[in-house]
Simulated scan of single mutants.
Amino acid sequence: MRFHCPTVKSISVFAPATVANVACGFDIFGFAVANPGDQITLTASDQPGVRITDIIGDEGRLPREAERNTAGIAIQTYLQHIGRTDVGVDAVLHKQMPLGSGLGSSAASAVAGVFAINEMLGRPLPTVELLPFAMEGERLACGSAHADNVAPSLLGGFVVVRSYSPLDVIRIETPAALYCTLVHPDIEVNTKDARFILKNEVSLKNTIIQMGNVAGLIAGLMKPDYGLISRSLVDVIIEPVRAILIPEFNEAKHAALDNGALGCSISGSGPSMFALSRDADTAQQVGAAMQQAFLSVGITSEAYVSEINKQGPRVVD
């Protein structure tokens, strides 16, 4: 394989936030949204190596050392893989979503970084082959190289992670009219804490219910059948445990469903919640109702409404 020096001196890339788990699909489902997301700017340097020169929007909380930063480690492992440790880049990371939000913040940074360096070098690897490097960012962030956030952020659309050994990721087509509402209450849930409270064993009864919902959701998306999507957006295993970490979770969920949402659950490990709707107006109404549920107990929130983002990362001016 032939590799080149950077074809551009500077490049900026936006990578989208994601909803992981999608109710019944713990660690296997995820989809990308149009906003929010993270942006990275890489500038070529004569000095080999990866340097994080600035991070904007993190309130000083993220490490600047490349090997301890999700974007930095993704770029480093990519360069090592293609044998280009002679390449030097300075990176400025713009965090445009809250940390610990359940919106795939660490994944978006890793995807933005590895997608940007691949573009800068003239695309020596196809986009799908960038996934393992972005997953290294997730390993750094939460101790597990899971793909349910990085895969949809990188590939766009709705993604199924069928297997990790070997890695097998499938992109599922979704209805054009499907809209997502994201509501992020101004509280924080640590991903490691959200995993720690999960049970190690699941009853056969709940396993069967969950498997039916997983199959039903995929079938509903592909047909498309909105009624089937709605009936399948049910999580009997993870949501009942993690909901206790989100104040007013039940009230916000009921508000979403009462205002026309097809379904509503936790986005990733929380505290953000997502809802799916059949049109933009309903999705906006759902967001307002969910925000009001949180505000009733003094919790402010941010709401985002978008279609499913089928593009994934993009180069920005």
Rank of each mutant, 00 (worst) to 15 (best):
E239T: 14
G270C: 04
E136I: 00
I170P: 04
P185V: 08
T282G: 04
G57I: 01
N250R: 12
G49M: 07
E188M: 10
T7G: 12
N206C: 14
D186T: 08
E65W: 07
V33M: 06
Y226I: 00
V189T: 09
G49Y: 07
V159Q: 12
F158H: 02
R231F: 11
T53N: 12
D58P: 07
M290E: 06
S296Y: 12
I266D: 03
P166I: 01
A44N: 01
I218T: 13
M1N: 15
V297M: 05
F133D: 00
P98Q: 03
R195V: 11
D54N: 13
Y226F: 15
I82E: 06
V183A: 01
I28K: 11
S45D: 07
P185K: 02
P6D: 08
T191I: 00
K199T: 11
M1C: 02
V50M: 03
I197C: 00
I187L: 11
F31W: 12
V89W: 09
L182N: 01
Q311Y: 02
T53P: 13
I229K: 09
I56T: 13
K199H: 14
K9D: 10
N213C: 05
T77F: 15
D235H: 01
V13S: 00
G260W: 08
A303V: 08
A283G: 03
E136C: 08
S45Q: 13
K95C: 11
V150M: 03
N250D: 12
L182E: 05
K253Q: 09
N21H: 05
A194I: 01
V234L: 12
E302N: 11
T127Q: 10
M1A: 15
C5P: 14
V114H: 13
L178N: 06
A71N: 14
P132T: 04
F115H: 12
E307G: 09
G268S: 04
Y304W: 15
L79W: 13
I218K: 00
P132G: 05
V8L: 07
R231Y: 13
S306I: 09
F158N: 00
Q292N: 15
C142D: 08
A303D: 10
M1Y: 15
L245N: 04
V128G: 01
V50W: 10
V22T: 04
D225F: 06
L257Q: 08
A91D: 06
I73G: 04
P247H: 07
V128L: 00
N250W: 13
M222D: 09
N213I: 07
I55P: 10
E65D: 13
F14E: 01
S45H: 15
V214D: 00
E251M: 02
A17C: 11
E65I: 03
A215N: 04
I55W: 12
C24E: 10
G83N: 04
V169Y: 02
S144W: 11
G100Y: 06
R61A: 14
A243G: 03
G60V: 07
Q39C: 07
M97F: 07
A303H: 11
